[in-house]
């Protein structure tokens, strides 16, 4: 057998072994995924009933339901499902129901879970934390998020700017007034859409201050805001 043939046989063995290993992983993943999706379905079904009762119930009923949810909410996986459900509810409801969803988020201390994600050094965890905190409007996270507007990772930076607007609209605009560097069109569009949906009152002086910002992007944003978000 030549050296060449020995190499080929070696490569065949490597390929075959890797194939077998990958297949084992594929089947394991399939079983885990199937188990998890069935489990998620079951938990979601239970949560949906509890959440409806929570949103429509009186204060006493709500307390009882919180206890029930807490019992259900022991594993990290279940907490993740609950946060996802709360995010959907927040996107679909406003007013008193949105306030109740937020109260539940705080009562179950899920905000701590989101804050831990925000403090996680991994960029996508930060992103997720920001997304949860801003969607559920946990305004206490404002300062921690504002530290991220110059984060080296572009995604974190961009999302931090939009999240700030969601949390404290006017304060965020004034924070962004002194922004250094550029702003993507995505950030623009998001900021204006948020402010259009949840208008705040900006005084003429505040608009003027924004228009006189050093940053040309913020300046343009101020003109766009005037045109699209505050056009009366």
């Amino acid at each position: 057998m030549t050296l060449n043939e020995t190499w080929i046989i070696g490569l065949i063995i490597v390929c075959s072994t890797l194939s077998v290993l990958m297949l084992i992983v594929v089947f394991l993943l399939k079983f885990i995924n199937t188990y998890q999706s069935n489990h998620a379905l079951r938990i979601k079904h239970l949560l949906h009933q509890l959440l409806v009762d929570y949103l429509l119930g009186d204060s006493l009923e709500r307390k009882q339901i919180i206890e029930k949810i807490q019992r259900l909410n022991k594993s990290r996986f279940n907490k993740k499902i609950l946060i996802d459900e709360l995010l959907i509810l927040t996107n679909n409801f406003s007013g008193i129901y949105a306030a109740r969803v937020f109260q539940l988020y705080k009562d179950l201390q899920l905000n701590e879970l989101s804050l831990n994600k925000l403090r996680n050094p991994i960029w996508h965890q930060k992103l997720r934390g920001m997304y949860e905190l801003s969607t559920l409007e946990y305004s206490e996270a404002f300062d921690e998020i504002s530290d991220l507007i110059y984060h080296p990772h572009g995604e974190v930076r961009r999302n931090a700017r939009v999240s700030l607007i969601k949390l404290k609209k006017k304060d965020a605009l004034m924070t962004l007034k002194d922004l250094e560097g550029s702003m993507s069109q995505w950030t623009y569009v998001s900021i204006i859409a948020i402010l259009k949906q949840n208008p705040i009152k900006l005084t003429g002086d505040e608009i003027r201050r924004l228009k006189s910002a050093q940053n040309p992007y913020v300046k343009t944003l101020a003109y766009d805001l005037e045109q699209f978000a505050y056009a009366q």
Binding site: N91, W123, H124, L127, R128, M130, Y131, T135, E155, N159, V162, Q185, W186, Y188, V189, S190, I192, A193, I194, K196, Q197, D224, F228
Partner: peptide, 22 residues
């Protein structure tokens, strides 16, 4: 993987209702 991690936290609703959407 990077795309999927990012996708979980992208909110397309802002773009969907924006008057500035190109």
């Amino acid at each position: 993987r990077a795309h999927l991690k990012k996708r979980k936290s992208v909110n397309f609703d802002n773009l969907l209702r924006s008057p500035l959407a190109p």
